[in-house]
């Protein structure tokens, strides 16, 4: 067998290995329903912060815990315990992605990504106030 063939075989083997490795090591997007159905599995859950509920962050007690309520894309509400300090401007977030597992009635998130609306979207919707028009 030629060296180039050996090299080619090794290349293909490694490539296949990381294709499978990549798929089998993946997490999965889910809604709360699925996440609470399989509490042993880690999921990415997309949703938005429930602004009607309180965001509990008591750094004097523990600076590494934030508790809040999230509504997933199906409208299901769950209490969330996040193992992070409260992110800056959390209240303004438009959508959040939680990474973690269901635990009893709560969702325990180890990581959270959030998006703030004004950061990336153009807001060029102006309004001329009535008074301004009449002047």
């Amino acid at each position: 067998m030629k060296k180039t063939h050996i090299v080619a075989i090794i290349l293909i083997a490694v490539a296949v290995a990381f294709m499978i490795g990549s798929v089998s090591d993946s997490s999965s997007y889910a809604d709360f329903k699925e996440a609470f159905q399989y509490p042993e599995k880690e999921f990415h859950v997309v949703g938005e912060l429930d602004r009607s509920a309180k965001i509990a962050y008591n750094p004097e007690i523990n600076p590494n815990v934030t508790k809040f309520t999230m509504i997933d894309n199906n409208g299901e509400r769950r209490k969330v315990v996040l193992n992070k300090s409260k992110p800056q401007d959390f209240e303004r977030s438009e959508s959040v992605v939680l990474i973690g597992k269901a635990n009893g009635e709560e969702f325990h998130a180890t990581e959270m990504l959030m998006k703030c609306p004004s950061k990336y979207k153009d807001e060029t919707q102006f309004e001329l106030k009535e008074t301004a028009l009449n002047n």
């Binding site: 590494n64 193992n83 973690g100 597992k101 325990h108 180890t110």
Partner: peptide, 9 residues
């Protein structure tokens, strides 16, 4: 609270 959580942040 959870085995995935850590204190040292």
């Amino acid at each position: 609270l959870s085995e995935d959580f850590s204190n040292n942040e």
